[in-house]
């Protein structure tokens, strides 16, 4: 079990309110990702749930029971820190066994759990090493091992992959997703990287300045962003957000069109411009288009390797059914 409910939770550091009143329910077994730009309060929110920070007002319930005043150890949650926070003077085995030793579990059971966690995480050969002798990815796995042996009600991850290189990050992303499928335990995962959010989450919570901008599945956020912030934040490359006369044609203050929803045509497109930088990825090419008569630079994704160079003229047509419209407050118009 691991249902977590936040009710009117706020957090202030001195005078500064980092989290204004916030309501959120995380269902049992769900993989929830908190995503948002740096400094928006994701870590703070996670630490409030963990109990490492006291909330300023409101309630936190875990499995329907009030946990607001419970100390971290009593909440039954396990956390994986950005710095991994391994105990440097203990072997991998002792690191993983630490929470069990603190719980005064008997030695045979500790050994059994540590070895099974180690085999799940491919750490069996490293059990007698110190964290200092491991690579970044292995340290990450030890931190996860230390979390899973406790069999917690929920896992909390705070940007666990941000210290890894790009290739390892993709690998660990898959491993964590696999782990979630296998354990079916609630996981809350904090990241500033929308790609991680999109690829891993059952439910994404988009935060900005401590405020929840939108909650939904990755595809819900992709298809129907509730406001311009979510529209610009989710999806890569970023959605083109156009204002002014072009938006007025659609009775909106701002319109949004994703780079993948603009077609490159031979002639007579809605827009015409010159190609700026072209980013060739092989499978796709991203063009940045200038001089279209619009205020904003337009990004376009073309499938495959399209033969257009810097300075060439390009004709574009947005797919009308894929245009998102937003009003003066930046809210979505259906």
């Amino acid at each position: 079990m691991g249902q977590i409910q936040l009710k009117q939770v706020t957090k202030s550091f001195g005078e500064v309110q980092v989290i204004p009143p916030l309501d959120l329910t995380i269902e049992d077994g769900e993989f929830t990702v908190f995503v948002g730009p740096s400094g928006c309060g994701k870590s703070t929110l996670l630490r409030l749930i963990a109990g490492l920070e006291d909330i300023s007002s409101g309630h936190i319930e875990i499995d329907g029971k009030d946990a607001t005043d419970l100390v971290p150890a009593k909440r039954g949650l396990a956390m994986v820190f950005q710095s991994y926070a391994l105990y440097p003077h203990m072997s991998v085995r002792k690191n993983i066994a630490f929470p069990l030793r603190m719980a005064k579990m008997d030695q045979a059971e500790i050994t059994r759990r540590v070895e099974s966690a180690a085999s799940v995480l491919n750490l069996t050969d490293y059990l007698d090493r110190r964290p200092g002798q491991l690579s970044g990815g292995q340290r990450q796995r030890v931190a996860i091992g230390r979390a899973i042996v406790r069999e917690p009600a929920a896992f909390l991850f705070d940007e666990p992959l941000s210290n890894l290189d790009a290739a390892l990050r993709v690998g660990m992303r898959l491993e964590i997703s696999e782990l979630h499928k296998r354990l079916e335990t609630t996981m809350i995962y904090v990241t500033h990287d929308q790609v991680e959010a999109m690829t891993m989450a059952d439910k994404i919570v988009v935060l900005q300045a401590g405020v929840i901008e939108q909650v939904g599945s990755p595809l819900e956020l992709y298809r129907a962003p509730r406001n311009t912030f979510v529209a610009g934040f989710i999806g890569s490359p970023k959605m083109n957000l156009l204002t002014g006369a072009e938006a007025a044609k659609y009775d909106a203050t701002t319109i949004g069109i994703r780079p993948e929803h603009i077609d490159v045509v031979e002639a007579d497109g809605a827009w015409q411009g010159t190609v700026g930088v072209a980013e060739h990825l092989g499978s796709d090419t991203f063009f940045h288009i200038h001089n279209t008569g619009l205020a904003e630079t337009i990004t376009v994704r073309a499938i495959g390797d399209v033969n257009l160079k810097h300075g060439d003229t390009i004709h574009l047509t947005p797919r009308a059914e894929e245009i998102h419209r937003f009003d003066g407050q930046g809210l979505r118009i259906e």
Binding site: M79, F81, Y87, F98, P99
Partner: peptide, 28 residues
Amino acid sequence: DSEQLEAAEMDGAPKVQRFFYIILPHLA
């Protein structure tokens, strides 16, 4: 690293244990 102490706190180590298992070895 304060995260080490927080990790130990989450792992269920009370203050005295945190001193003997984390702080003291760090000071060795």
